[in-house]
């Protein structure tokens, strides 16, 4: 399998090296009369791990849905160099199908549907291969959802709410898998998280989305030091946590 991106939506100006895998400019998305994203710009570099945090209803899921082509933007540009795979909010597995079939469907449109590389990254899935997806625990389902996304051999994986509804210990395991994927395979990660501490820990850069606008961005370390962000997303920055 070559690593040459097959589905560059727009190759854009400049050479292939050091170009962002995701580049979004002035993105506007509306649901009827309501505007969910009002002029959002951001980028993810190759092999980079970027966090996207923000309160409920900020538009985070809308942003990823726009990236994977499920919602159509009203205006703005989205450039994806290479392949983007999407781990949707709430797992969204094919409940009637087995775990392995869920993985195979993740390779839709590809001739290479061998799940072995995904089992290598997520060994726990091998033992679950024959189980029906609907009958798995939340953590197992999240792992299948990540595995299904990896079947597309993505250059960047967008994970919407990794920790949603999962026990801390399960989340730690999943986060380790993502970290390894990023560090060892160079897969870029866009991580959407309610748990900003986890996101900042896993990623090098972060954006804060509020009410459809990017309000802050920067290196995670600096954001964690900023009082404003820390208070809003890390459970208090000045004093003790409640």
């Amino acid at each position: 399998m070559s690593n040459v991106p097959e589905t560059a939506v727009d190759s854009g100006p400049g050479g292939p090296h050091g170009e962002s895998v995701i580049e979004v400019a002035d993105l506007v998305v509306r649901y009827g009369a309501a505007t969910a994203l009002q002029g959002v710009s951001f980028s993810v570099g190759p092999g980079e791990a970027v966090a996207l945090v923000g309160p409920n209803g900020a538009g985070k899921s809308t942003l990823v849905n726009a990236l994977s082509g499920i919602v159509r933007p009203a205006s703005g540009t989205i450039r994806i160099r290479g392949r983007l795979a999407h781990v949707p909010e709430g797992r969204q597995l094919f409940g009637e199908l087995s775990v392995e079939d869920n993985l195979l469907i993740g390779a839709w449109g590809r001739s290479d549907r061998d799940p072995a590389p995904v089992y290598a990254v997520l060994p726990e899935l091998r033992g679950l291969a024959r189980r029906k997806a609907a009958a798995l625990s939340g953590g197992q389902q999240q792992m299948v959802a990540i595995g299904r996304a990896l079947m597309a051999r993505p250059d960047v994986i967008a994970v919407d709410e990794l920790s949603l509804g999962l026990a801390p210990k399960v989340v730690t395991g999943l986060a380790a898998h993502l970290r390894a994927l990023n560090a060892e395979r160079g897969t870029a990660v866009l991580l959407i998280e309610q748990n900003a501490r986890l996101a900042f820990d896993l990623c090098s850069r972060a954006y804060v989305l509020e009410a459809g606008r990017m309000v802050v961005s920067g290196a995670c370390e600096e954001l964690a030091r900023s009082n404003e962000v820390a208070r809003a997303y890390l459970g208090g920055g000045t004093g003790e946590e409640p």
Binding site: Q92, E96, L97, I105
Partner: peptide
């Protein structure tokens, strides 16, 4: 069957 089971996820993949 995947489309029947979860049309949104089908579009995701």
């Amino acid at each position: 069957t995947a489309c029947a089971s979860n049309p949104y996820a089908a579009r995701v993949v």
